[in-house]
Write a protein that binds this DNA or RNA. Structure first.
Lengths: 234, 234
DNA sequence: CCTCTGCCCGTTGTATACATGTGGCTTGGC
DNA sequence: GCCAAGCCACATGTATACAACGGGCAGAGG
């Protein structure tokens, strides 16, 4: 559905700041479609968490504070932590573990000799895959569903800060820490250590929080390049 | 919206078993409305988690296994645990703490002299309120939103098993345990003990899991009286 | 007999006209 | 001058007709 992607893109690129009320008629002419699919699109974006429904009908662009972004990242950490714990406690198949280890190896290959030598595009892709497979290994469609939901807010996604920061050497070096957490996470799951797996996953999400903090307070220009950060208001 | 409540009720009462595909036209004549509001209603029920969207359009009634129900309860525990932890870590106002303690006292008043003497209706109402306020005290609208979402599945709600089991004395006695957890939870939050608060909340949700287990394996007749349990298939 | 292709029917997607409701503004009365 | 009530305009809710898409079945050809 073209209109869905188009409106989503417009919201994520800041065309409609948080709190903006979206009217069916004006959106209909903007998107060159009739009101019916506009309603459909807004309904789906509300499901995604980008829009809020008003009490007496209508939609507004959801507005996020810095604290909301912090909490959304915390939420992702908690949910991924739960997935990791369930995977460890309930056990995973050899095939599943192999799959995770294969991705781990791919991530490993992204690092070069120098501490700040990282192939970011390949890393980003493998990292996204790692997080998806990790959650699948929980064996719970209920948890998987909610992780995917929490991840749909772009600034809460595991890949959120992996773009647009390639120039910061300190950031590239910090990926070594993240990768160590990936390794440890796999070890914890393989060893059926639920609590360990859970808290490593939580701590892993804290990297995103730290990056968010940096973007907001140290280098506000980044807020324009990291996907979704334009949604932050106050 | 009458149609929304009507369809929700029909699904929750098992008129459309999990996996049933809902067609716009037939539903439209059943509910005596046109296709447009039917689409709207189905969209909202998909948001609630009662329906699943099909890839090429259309909706089916979401189907839950016993394992899904267990995981949904686990999810609620994890989210309420996070709310409790945040409340403890970040601190709550005196007014907030007072409010929680007032509800705690109301719950206390529901217990009589005998171990199985409990005013169930009053308890159920105060219990629901307790869980709502607890989550509010987290101070996080993001977390609150997700707890409310997780709670919308009727069998995962904190009040799910408080109806239709009044006749089981052992069940009424088990409420003493729940109430002790309520007390301890408040103590942990007041004392800024985040980890303690989190795990008490998780353990608290386990009571629901135990009740689910009982209903499914020991007393299947209960599945007809506990709201939402008819949604369970295999 | 098996397979591939094309048609047909059922379902959802879209447009549009009409109904309904709500909030704001204006006017009249106290 | 202020408050209240009613009206008007703009927004969403609903109905319905038409379009487009997809899956299944049947018929024909290899």
């Amino acid at each position: 559905m073209r209109a869905l992607m188009e409106l989503r893109k417009k919201i994520l690129s800041g065309d409609y700041p948080g709190g903006t009320r979206l009217f069916e008629v004006s959106l209909a002419e903007t998107l060159q479609i009739s009101r019916t699919p506009v309603r459909e699109v807004m309904s789906r974006l509300a499901e995604e968490g980008l829009l809020d429904r008003l009490a007496n009908g209508g939609f507004v662009v959801r507005s996020f504070t810095y604290a909301d972004a912090v909490d959304a990242i915390e939420l992702r950490g908690v949910l991924e932590g739960t997935a990791a714990r369930l995977a460890a406690e309930r056990g995973v198949s050899q095939a599943g573990l192999d799959q995770l280890r294969e991705i781990l190896a791919r991530l490993e290959d992204c690092f070069g000799e120098a501490a700040d030598d990282v192939e970011l595009e390949a890393y980003s892709e493998a990292n996204a895959k790692f997080h998806v497979v990790l959650v699948e290994l929980s064996g719970s469609t209920v948890i998987q569903r909610e992780v995917e939901r929490a991840t749909r807010l772009p600034f809460a996604s595991p890949s959120a800060f992996l773009s647009g920061r390639a120039h910061v050497a300190a950031f590239r070096q910090s990926l070594h820490i993240a990768q160590e957490q990936h390794r440890t996470l796999v070890s914890a799951i393989a060893g059926r250590e639920g609590a360990r797996a859970e808290f490593i996953a939580r701590e892993h999400a804290r990297i995103a929080r730290k990056n968010l903090e940096y973007a907001v307070f140290e280098d506000p220009e980044l807020m324009l390049t990291v996907p979704g950060l334009v949604l932050l208001n106050s």
